[in-house]
Design a protein around this nucleic acid. Structure first.
Lengths: 190, 190
DNA sequence: CACGTGATGAGACCGAGTCCCATCACGCTA
DNA sequence: TAGCGTGATGGGACTCGGTCTCATCACGTG
């Protein structure tokens, strides 16, 4: 037996999502989230830097997965190959069992500007992670920045398609198609 | 003679930047900004939705300039031509006289996460504006999204180069070069 | 001279976030 | 078994961002 109920952080995150769905993000107090998790307000802020962050924990794992996947590619891989590998690695976060959770979370985020703002910060961190990983593979710096933006765009649109209720394909497949289509479109620009 | 000192909004913005440079963003209170401008806290929030926004007013003008420039292009213009026109229009916001102000402003923003977050929101709005303007010109939706991201990236890197103390070229020129280089790099991806 | 209008000020109020200090359950050690 | 260190917690005071309501005040108009 632990001294306190275990998984305080997870309980807080779950309580938060429930309350946000019930009353909306703004209609929910940090103290209320804590209380529902059987904790106090102080403890909430000990686990999360701010109220927004409770919806975004684990984001760094995705960035790490990108970096690892890119670093593991054979030396012959093109920038596009590297992006494909990165997005394929991200697919592990988007299993069918998680779809319900992710859908609820995304719906909450999209209904609140504060949360969309925070999502953009996470997105920027993701793009930075991609850029860094590509440059570490000696991709030209400017090309790396461009490729990272394209990878980020492919990630987002594949994500949106994956969440579509009418969709039944898995994330890896969607991301692959999206990235391929974007790289072809990119060639038509100049 | 007006009933009150005119240009309350401008005075607030100027006072804010001064104080942010002196004491940092977090070390400055909204009430202090108002006081320095000869106004009260209530009036500050009557002119700006929140403390961050005082550094970002006028952002929509840029988006409008993009949309207008793109809409004014001849029907034969390629997506890349449309982007060039948009960035050229943006150059009017970056005259040599404004460089000092913009430099101070940017330095404050980069030192604070809250402000960087807000900047990302403005950047997203800019990308959306570009996307919309391109689609209105019957650019393929997916290609429009991609082109908008590339335009946004070109805008940012040209902006960074323009702010570089060692730089003496004007913004239009920098943006043109940056966009051309990016479009060439894009062709090497697939 | 009375009245409407619009920008302002003052102050109450709520919630986010910080900080400090007490508590309490456990493991370790004498 | 008694004492001690440790780490997660709770509570409450505090600051500040942001909202809201109400009064004020300078002006133009009838």
């Amino acid at each position: 037996m632990a001294r306190w109920e275990p998984n305080a952080r997870e309980r807080l995150a779950a309580s938060a999502l429930d309350l946000f769905v019930e009353r909306g993000y703004e209609g929910t107090t940090a103290a209320e989230i804590a209380t529902r998790a059987g904790l106090g307000k102080s403890t909430f802020f000990r686990h999360f830097a701010d109220k927004r962050e409770v919806l975004f924990s684990g984001q760094e794992l995705l960035n790490d997965a990108f970096a690892t996947a890119i670093a593991a590619c054979p030396p012959t891989a093109s920038p596009l190959d590297l992006l494909h590998a990165a997005l394929a690695a991200a697919a592990r976060a988007f299993t069918p069992e998680r779809r319900d959770f992710v859908t609820k979370r995304q719906s909450v985020i999209e209904q609140n500007t504060e949360l969309r703002e925070r999502e953009l910060l996470k997105r920027a961190a993701m793009t930075d992670a991609l850029t860094t990983a590509l440059r570490a593979r000696d991709v030209d710096p400017q090309l790396a920045a461009l490729a990272a933006e394209i990878g980020s765009l492919a990630f987002r649109t594949a994500f949106a398609r994956w969440l579509d209720p009418a969709n039944d394909r898995d994330y890896a497949e969607l991301a692959r198609d999206e990235l391929t289509a974007l790289s072809k479109a990119a060639a038509t620009l100049s």
